[in-house]
Simulated assay, not measured.
Amino acid sequence: MEVEAALIRKIIHVDMDAFYASVEQRDNPELRGKPVAVGGSSKRGVVAAASYEARAFGVRSAMPSVTAQRQCPDLVFVKPRFEAYKAVSRHIREIFSRFTDIVQPLSLDEAYLDVTQDKQGIGSAVKIAKAIRTAIRDETGLTASAGVSYNKFIAKLASDQNKPDGLCVILPEQGPEFVASLPVRRFHGVGPRTAEKMAKLGVNTGADLAQKDEAWLAHHFGSWGGYLFQAARGIDLRPVNSNAVRKSIGAESTYFNDKRSEAELRDALDVIVDILWDRIDRHCGQGRTLVLKARYSDFRTITRSRTVGHILADRAAIAQLGHRLLDQIQPVEMGVRLLGLTLSGLIDQTTSPESTPQGHFTFDHIED
């Protein structure tokens, strides 16, 4: 299957480098060059973002703070300043608007841009990407990486290719070969458990995936099979949607050691609440329905949900309702291998995430 010329677009995916941590290092010179984690340092705290100095020690976003501190004893914790991050994000989006009106933000720190017909008549998506990165550096003091390609799927992969402060260009004729060379774990939406399942099926790279027909993929991955079939061939027909609507915001954790006791489950839920609230806050999400998901050691999955008559407007409200939902599955009959919370039926937000083939947005799984 080849990409038809009529469907080729000029897409840029811009991704700020270690955004929260970089803003903190920019605003506080004493933090520059040091391993920095944005988030809480308490026992139940979670890393919201990590500087590249911290990432060198294996510190990652969504990691429990105690684990991060253990991996990097010199780690400096900084409390999040979301208003500062939002202000910088607004400036960056103003820069985007100079080049195109077709912008689909995914979060405060990344977005897709369709520059097929750019406002300045530059004509070259690569030159536009360079101009955007230069403007961001000059006007905000921060760096951004960018991927330039003919569709959203590959542009997003490309933006991560030369981080930090990098640029990667994948032309239409290079797309299938580029995708074939990547591990499937790099594919958007493929988490650790899906990658593990693929490995057991003999699928480790894009090339392995491209060897499978659509019927085989549908059998093993359901409705997601069609997406995988096209992605493995470098095809993605989704347009950049500046009016995309987020349906939910969630966080879930998969555990190597099953959680069994009530105390373990409540501690685990508190960590998920912190991660979820961070994401709700940064995406300005508002909703009234909270969904708890639990997957048992036999892979049986259950959900419990509740809709309230008011907006769940703070972490305490999310936590209180989350623990009430957890009460409904106590005591657990067997170990819990996955626990998650989702705020659904969102009614208002200022940023819009990527729409997945399933019609909703799922954040990365977290493994401890």
Rank of each mutant, 00 (worst) to 15 (best):
R60F: 03
C168A: 09
S305E: 07
Q358D: 14
D213E: 13
L31I: 08
V273P: 04
W277S: 06
F19A: 00
M334L: 15
L339D: 01
I235M: 00
L113H: 00
A313C: 12
S355V: 11
N257M: 15
R9G: 03
V3N: 10
L209F: 08
A319V: 03
G45F: 03
G309F: 12
I235S: 00
C72F: 03
I318G: 04
N243S: 15
V66M: 09
L265F: 12
G40I: 13
S145A: 06
G322M: 05
L237I: 13
D258K: 14
D165S: 14
R90F: 07
A125P: 01
V245Q: 14
A155K: 07
E2V: 13
R246Y: 09
E177Q: 14
K163C: 07
K43L: 11
S253R: 13
Q104W: 01
R186C: 10
V3F: 05
I136A: 03
I329C: 09
A313K: 14
R32A: 09
S242I: 15
T303F: 02
R186Q: 15
R288D: 00
A50T: 11
P353E: 09
D236S: 04
R9D: 02
A68T: 13
R93H: 08
F256M: 12
Y255D: 04
A6W: 14
K127E: 12
I347T: 15
Q211H: 13
A218M: 06
R324G: 15
A316S: 14
A199K: 03
A251W: 02
D368W: 05
A316R: 13
Q71I: 05
L142D: 05
E24C: 03
V78P: 00
V38N: 03
R260W: 09
K34S: 10
D327Y: 00
D208N: 05
G340V: 04
E262L: 05
A54W: 01
A232W: 06
R295F: 03
M334K: 15
W216Q: 10
L321A: 08
A232F: 04
D298A: 10
T356H: 03
R300D: 10
L7G: 12
I235V: 08
P29K: 08
G226T: 04
L217P: 11
R233H: 13
V38A: 05
I280K: 05
H360P: 04
P183D: 14
K130R: 15
F256D: 09
I92S: 02
A199S: 14
E173Y: 11
K200D: 13
V3D: 08
M1H: 15
D101P: 02
V332S: 01
F153W: 06
G189C: 02
V273G: 06
K156F: 05
T100R: 01
